Computed example of a mutant assay.
Amino acid sequence: MRFSLRPLIARCALAAALPLAAAAAFTLSTAATSTVAHAQQMPAGAKQPGEFPRVKLTAGMFVIDAAVAANDADREQGLMYRTTLAPNEGMLFVFGENAVHCFWMKNTLIPLSIAFMRADGTITDIDEMDAETTNNHCPRNNGVYALEMSKGFFSSKGIKPGMKIQGLPQP
């Protein structure tokens, strides 16, 4: 009796491929659900990104579109729950007192860079912050502003401590 192994091999390959395809579909579905879940975690009463006042800042030749967080509730929320930032978009934190203002990244889904500034806009410190961590990021110097941008923004633009940010609102 003669038989061919091709149908058997094809059936085995199909049988092996189906679980892999199902696993891949589950993984993609889970990733999409996870992304949606992150986007849906914004608590009731939290501001949507477009609801923050905005200001145009300049750092050398670079223009920055910054949302402004100038009160306790806005500073507490900051960039939490956001999943993206436009290339030159960030958030400016304005404080009423010249002090050391520390930050952390709890519920912040994207990695950020932060520049701490004095009242005259001079950058005193820059730090890199990983997403969803509770490490404290504190400047070594007192200041009244902090500007969060996508991670690596300041270094990629050559912006360093000692340089000034222009267009800051009054604290």
Results as ranks from 00 to 15, higher is better:
residue 37 A to G: 09
residue 74 D to L: 06
residue 118 R to L: 05
residue 69 A to T: 12
residue 51 E to D: 12
residue 26 F to N: 10
residue 87 P to G: 02
residue 46 A to M: 14
residue 139 P to A: 09
residue 129 M to F: 11
residue 63 V to H: 07
residue 83 T to K: 12
residue 37 A to R: 13
residue 115 A to Q: 05
residue 68 V to E: 07
residue 32 A to M: 05
residue 31 A to E: 04
residue 5 L to K: 13
residue 31 A to F: 00
residue 103 F to S: 01
residue 12 C to S: 08
residue 122 T to V: 10
residue 110 I to Y: 12
residue 105 M to G: 09
residue 14 L to Y: 03
residue 70 A to V: 11
residue 106 K to G: 05
residue 91 M to F: 14
residue 92 L to P: 06
residue 114 I to E: 05
residue 59 A to P: 02
residue 91 M to L: 07
residue 104 W to S: 00
residue 101 H to S: 06
residue 126 I to V: 15
residue 116 F to R: 00
residue 95 F to I: 08
residue 37 A to E: 13
residue 125 D to S: 01
residue 135 N to G: 01
residue 111 P to K: 03
residue 33 T to H: 10
residue 71 N to C: 02
residue 66 A to Y: 10
residue 78 G to P: 03
residue 63 V to K: 02
residue 40 Q to K: 11
residue 95 F to D: 04
residue 96 G to P: 01
residue 30 T to L: 06
residue 26 F to K: 05
residue 85 L to T: 00
residue 129 M to V: 04
residue 92 L to S: 09
residue 105 M to S: 11
residue 27 T to V: 13
residue 35 T to N: 11
residue 43 P to Q: 08
residue 84 T to Q: 14
residue 31 A to T: 10
residue 108 T to I: 06
residue 31 A to R: 12
residue 137 H to E: 01
residue 121 G to V: 07
residue 139 P to K: 02
residue 52 F to H: 15
residue 85 L to G: 00
residue 80 M to F: 00
residue 66 A to F: 05
residue 137 H to T: 08
residue 17 A to S: 13
residue 10 A to C: 06
residue 107 N to K: 13
residue 135 N to T: 13
residue 10 A to G: 05
residue 29 S to A: 08
residue 24 A to D: 09
residue 12 C to Q: 11
residue 62 F to N: 11
